[in-house]
């Protein structure tokens, strides 16, 4: 990227501090805390044979509690994944392609989350 590198201090200073970086860090931690019980629930429910065939899946997700928990899990998981993948892209990609990758990651996670939530609702509502 084009950034002034005339003196060591200007190289270290770069473009200055961007600000508002703690929000990303905090959101990652909050979604992590939310994911702890939700993932344990998912693992336990699936291991308990909650979705061995279509009938079991339908019964499992028809219960309102399970529907809500699954939707919360999808929101938290895709939010946490989007933030984490963005961090990975910032770490390893140093060219301008970084912006394209981050945009792709955000859009893909939004799409995945939306698809999962709609699918859960459809399974819960339709018979």
């Amino acid at each position: 990227m084009t950034r002034p590198r005339i003196t060591p201090y200007s190289a270290a200073h770069g473009l200055g501090a961007a600000g508002h970086a703690a929000r990303h860090w905090w959101a990652q931690r909050v979604s992590a805390i939310a994911l702890v019980p939700l993932v344990l629930w998912l693992v336990w429910a699936l291991a308990n044979g909650g979705a061995t065939d279509y009938a079991a899946l339908s019964d499992w997700l028809k219960s309102p509690i399970n529907t809500i928990l699954m939707i919360l899990l999808l929101i938290a998981a895709f939010h946490h994944a989007a933030l984490g993948l963005q961090t990975i892209a910032e770490d390893y990609i140093h060219s301008r392609a970084r912006f394209a990758v981050i945009a792709l990651v955000q859009l893909a996670c939004a799409a995945g989350g939306a698809a999962g939530i709609v699918a859960t609702l459809l399974i819960a509502i339709t018979s």
């Binding site: 770069g14 961007a18 508002h20 970086a21 910032e90 770490d91």
Partner: peptide, 12 residues
Amino acid sequence: LEALDDPFRLYR
């Protein structure tokens, strides 16, 4: 803290 509040300077 303002000078450190940056996704790269501190949060890498």
